[in-house]
Amino acid sequence: MEKECACSNRFADVDDLGPLEEIIEHYGSEKGALIPLLQEAQDAYGYLDEKIMREIAKRAGYQLSQVFGVATFFAQFRLKPIGEYLIKVCHGTACHVAGATQITDEVINQLGIEEGETTPDNKFTLESVMCLGACALAPIMVVGDDTHGKLKPTKIKKVLKAYAGPGGPEGAEGDDAE
């Protein structure tokens, strides 16, 4: 399986407008393309910096208020940079019933950050999401591109440790279900 590069500089610098220009060009004058524009910009830069949103408004011909309005309305858009690995703890119904609160608590406990925050070493950002569609393996947590199912609070330390070192995750390929 091909894996996305997980090195810390996988996102473009917000001062480099090259990637943004390509994205804007790709969508051209397509109507209703604001959301995909913002999605791709976020994929390229990791988050939506104010500067990027201003550029989108200017170059793609939107009102700045519309760009800000859309970016703040949808939960997916981040206005702050994220760490190397995004941790998404599922808080959908099945995961809630299976103890998702304790999972988030333990991640907070291990990393010393609150939800929405990034560790000082820029490794991890913690978020919660509503259902990843693998409810039957609840509780679920995604770290980077890997899904970990049937978690227990006591397993969190081990899961996170695999990502803590330099380079990619070690043996972290979502095979934690027992």
Binding site: G133, L137, T147, K150, E173, D175
Partner: peptide
């Protein structure tokens, strides 16, 4: 997705 979360990639 479910199978992959349970370890199907390693099996593959």
């Amino acid at each position: 997705t479910c199978g992959i979360a349970a370890g199907a990639t390693a099996v593959k």
